[in-house]
Design a protein around this nucleic acid. Structure first.
Length: 912
RNA sequence: GGGCGAGUAGCUCAGUUGGUUAGAGCGCCUGCCUUACACGCAGGAUGUCGGGGGUUCGAGUCCCUCCUCGCUCACCA
């Protein structure tokens, strides 16, 4: 319930707002740290994928903010050409109208209105999970400024000869009625049919003819030749002759082309230049006609150059229906030789899943090879790293085989292509500004009807959001290049690699130095979560039920580098239990602390003298430093030290789950389980030692909150605001901008203290174990003797603490191993060689304990045996590092002692 | 078809250059409403580290091979 108010205070204080002047690349004294958000589609609503993606970004941004960087996280929206247009078209259909009835101008206006009114909801939703974006800089790919930049990029590339108009077979979606790039036409494996069709030879009315195999019989109406391999002995005699195209009944030549694979199918390929990219190439080589036999919607027709190929009964018939009819006709005329089942990959539209139709048309293309070169080099030379590492190979493989990018879309929603045609002069002009008349003849011109691929605007995002094309803009000077790019692997090619190309093409520098690809959110059957499949989780439900911090912690802690996140949409409580439980724990620690420590200022830890500190104090301070070190190591270096990643740091860091685990362990297992319990008697005392305990507990918890703030910003900020302040210390107004903890190197004395407290903890655990093993009721008092020749004073000093935490009256026997206990007693060895003894005084079944002891002895014998064998092995002692051998020897010694001890005990207790 | 990855406790996953008795969370078992927390506390059980071979004094970790799942690219009609 506190989240919204805290978020508003952060916003009011302007702590998410970046200032160019503070960046050290622009006269300031702070390192800039910048992340550009992968802009969600303007019509999108928040789902778990966004939740994951933006939580990761926010964790990193908040970490750097606390580290003192000038942080900037730029939020944005993508106009999402096809996706948005589809939505409006559906709306229009529901209203009984259509985009063509509306007309282009009205359609665009309506879409813009819709986007204006309801779009961008997702950015509001991101605030609910705590996203610390600089909302003043929210960018939109179709805004006037970015549209100008898009046009500038088009014109520049054209001037450099990298954009051209191409006439070729492209991927066409018959439902969206637009062309698609290679990446947008996605392969899906399908089991289809391979139809073997016999084409009679011209002049021979009878006979078998030539058999070709095809998966798309309907395209045969567009056939202009049959092709065989020039060296295929079966067919060489036929080259140059003709065959009859069934159904259309026209004569087509038999040609030779090396493209044909003699080993596949029958070794004869039908050539359909207008409806197959390979056949198109063959057609070019052999100067064949290229008849189009389908409408844009995918219905059969006699299109350009087709004349009378499609018979009347097939005109207007959909391609798949036509396939059935043609197969039936072929069968009837005995031209269908056979049909085989056939596994193959079919391309589908990435937006509507319709089977893509290859189609001959005129489109604008970007020549990619020159752009790919520096992008390839950037990853190879370490200017850019990709995490997890394995994606670098995928990236390199794609860029090495890059193909030109079809950027024109036959849509209305998007950036209109800045090209104007003069039909009279049969020329065109590419222009930064609108053109109203032909330069040559002063006659009328018309602008290209098409718009640009959505990704043609988003690939410029890191540039345009910072002020490009003005290369000297404050934004670019202060914040370019950015730092991390965080997204899902699905858009590595669509977006990430193209941004890298754009960075080099337009700024001569990479747009970022790190690409972090996180996993996908899936359900327990590992199916990708999606609203339409009904297996989605609404992050706002989670926020409302368990809080944003529970969501964030669960997501971060549960996700290894690059691994998918599995959640159960049917059981939110179970899915988010880790985060909810930890958030509650944290809150309760805070409650205890505030109730016991109170609000009065505490002493500063810096001024405490070492003789004031108790053993637990020194231990928790040591654990704090160790935890900070662990968190820092998991988060890693924020940027390459010298522009390029050195090998040893390249794949280090951003292990957010390890960072989360280290912080959790410190808070829960160190502070809550041990330190806090150890202070319970002290603070109530109200004396000087109580003041020390107050100071240390406050200090340790304060630093826990700092460590956890990037992951759980709301709870940590709320608690931190109420924490007592150390006297004479200037504290930041918000935890969100408080200093990140620094690890202090531990002195030898501190390390010894930590080891000593670990021994004390062992004694406590030993007592609890005995109580549990012998089922001694919690209220029943027990006595314990610690026999310790070496650490008697340590145990003496902490007998009270051990007794309180272990629920026993503890005394210490400094004489060490004296005469064996006459009474039945439980013995537990402590790793310093001491022994903890609890007389069981008739409460316990002796035979049970003997059995236990014997089992323990037996296991120890086995382990000792293999350890000794190892130490007798010369290979080990001579080749293993000395430190390892030494450690093993020490261990063997200890185990021998323990074995003797156990054997003695069994003798004494069990009589054998 | 090419490339890559994964297979570790019932489930979801860690395990950094080969080196003590392989870890965490959830779940499970036992006992506890111990004055911050039962979303908790204490104690506990559970692993032929996918199969097989190899290198090594030593392999979850390196190599080979097989099996099973993913991801990704691809013009075999």
């Amino acid at each position: 319930s506190a989240e919204r108010a805290i978020y508003e205070r952060w916003i009011d204080a302007g702590i998410f707002t970046a200032d160019e002047k503070r960046s050290n690349t622009n006269g300031g004294d702070r390192e800039p740290f910048v992340i550009v958000m992968p802009p969600p589609n303007v019509t999108a609503v928040l789902h778990m994928g966004h939740g994951l993606n933006n939580t990761v970004q926010d964790v990193i941004v908040r970490w750097r903010r606390m580290k003192g960087d000038e942080t900037l996280w730029i939020p944005g929206l993508d106009h999402a050409g096809i996706a948005t247009q589809n939505i409006i078209e559906k709306q229009l259909a529901a209203e009984g109208t259509s985009k063509s009835a509306l007309g282009r101008e009205a359609f665009v206006e309506r879409t813009a209105d819709f986007v204006e009114r309801t779009g961008g909801e997702i950015l509001q939703q991101l605030k609910a999970i705590g996203a610390s974006c600089d909302w003043n800089r929210t960018a939109y790919t179709l805004s006037p400024a970015l549209s100008l930049a898009v046009r500038e990029a088009f014109v520049q590339l054209h001037e450099r000869g990298l954009i051209y108009r191409g006439h070729r077979v492209i991927h066409w979606c018959p439902r969206c009625l637009t062309s698609l790039s290679d990446e947008e036409a996605q392969h899906e494996d399908e089991s289809g049919q391979l139809y073997h069709i016999s084409y009679p030879l011209a002049g021979a009315t009878e006979g078998p003819g030539l058999t070709v195999a095809t998966t798309r019989p309907e395209t045969m109406l567009g056939d202009v030749a049959l092709a065989v391999h020039p060296d295929d002995a079966r067919y060489t005699s036929l080259i140059g002759k003709s065959a009859i195209l069934p159904i259309s009944n026209i004569q087509i030549p038999i040609i030779a082309d090396e493209y044909v694979d003699p080993t596949f199918g029958t070794g004869v390929v039908k050539i359909t230049p207008a409806h197959d990219p390979n056949d198109f190439e063959v057609g070019l080589r052999h100067k064949l006609p290229m008849p189009v036999v389908m409408t844009p919607e995918g219905a059969m027709t006699n299109g350009a150059d087709a004349e009378a190929r499609v018979p009347a009964d097939l005109i207007g018939v959909d391609r798949f229906e036509a396939r059935r009819k043609i197969v039936a006709q072929l069968e009837a005329s005995r031209r269908l030789v056979k049909v085989e089942p056939h596994q193959h990959a079919v391309r589908h539209c990435y937006r509507c899943d319709t089977v893509v139709e290859p189609r001959l048309s005129d489109q604008w293309f970007v020549r990619m090879e020159p752009l790919a070169k520096p992008a390839l080099e950037a990853v190879r030379d370490g200017s850019i790293r990709i995490l997890p590492e394995r994606w670098e190979a995928v990236y390199i493989n794609w860029l090495e085989n890059i193909r030109d990018w079809n950027i024109s879309r036959q849509l209305w929603w998007g950036h209109r292509i800045p090209v104007w045609y003069c039909d009279r002069c049969a020329t065109h002009v590419v222009s930064r500004t609108d053109v109203s008349a032909c330069e040559k003849c002063r006659g009328p011109v018309r602008q290209d009807e098409d718009v640009l691929d959505t990704w043609f605007s988003s690939w410029l995002f890191p540039l345009t959001t910072l002020g490009w094309p003005d290369r000297s803009s404050a934004g670019l000077v202060a914040f370019y290049p950015t730092d991390d790019l965080i997204t899902a692997p699905e858009i590595l090619f669509f977006w990430v690699s193209r941004m890298i190309m754009a960075g080099y093409a337009f700024m001569d520098a990479p747009p970022f130095h790190t690409v972090y690809l996180h996993g996908t959110v899936r359900d327990t059957d590992h199916v990708k979560m999606s609203k339409s499949l009904g297996n989605g989780i609404d992050p706002l439900d989670v926020v409302n039920t368990y809080g944003a911090d529970a969501l964030r912690y669960t997501v971060i802690a549960g996700m290894g580098m690059g691994a998918d996140l599995i959640l159960d949409h049917r059981d939110l409580e179970k899915s988010f239990a880790p985060g909810r439980n930890f958030a509650t724990k944290l809150w309760n620690i805070g409650r205890f602390l505030l109730a016991n420590v109170g609000a009065a200022p505490v002493r500063s830890v810096d001024e405490l003298t070492s003789d004031e500190l108790t053993l637990p104090d020194r231990w928790i301070l040591g654990r704090l430093s160790a935890s900070v070190t662990e968190c820092d190591a998991a988060l890693g270096p924020p940027r390459p030290s010298n522009g390029r990643w050195r090998r040893e740091e390249r794949y280090a860091g951003l292990r957010l789950n390890e960072y989360a685990e280290s912080a959790r362990r410190f808070v829960w297992n160190d502070i809550a389980d041990w330190y806090l319990e150890s202070t319970k008697g002290r603070i109530a005392g109200g004396n000087a030692d109580g003041e020390v305990a107050r100071a240390i507990l406050t200090h340790a918890f304060d630093h826990s909150l700092r460590l956890l703030h990037p992951i759980m910003p709301f709870i940590t900020e709320t608690l931190w605001q109420r924490l007592p302040t150390p006297v004479a210390s200037a504290r930041a107004e918000f935890l969100a901008v408080a200093e990140w903890p620094r690890a202090l190197p531990a002195s030898a004395a501190e390390l010894e203290s930590m080891a000593h407290f670990d021994i004390v903890r062992e004694a406590v655990t030993a007592l609890r174990q005995i109580r549990s093993d012998y089922a001694i009721a919690p209220g029943k008092p027990i006595d314990a003797v610690i026999r310790s020749p070496r650490n008697a004073s340590l145990f003496q000093n902490h007998a009270g603490l051990i007794g309180r935490l272990g629920r026993a009256r503890v005394s210490v026997d400094a004489a060490g191993a004296g005469p064996q206990a006459v009474d039945a007693a439980a013995h537990v060895l402590i790793s310093d060689g001491s022994e903890l003894v609890v007389p069981l005084g008739g409460v316990v079944d002796l035979s049970k304990e003997c059995g236990k002891l014997r089992t323990e002895l037996e296991q120890l014998e086995i382990q000792l045996h293999s350890l000794s064998a190892r130490l007798r092995n010369e290979g080990f002692t001579s080749r293993a590092p000395a430190s390892v051998v030494e450690a093993e020897r020490k261990k063997e010694e200890e185990w021998r002692r323990r074995r003797e001890h156990l054997a003695d005990k069994v003798k004494a207790l069990c009589g054998d």
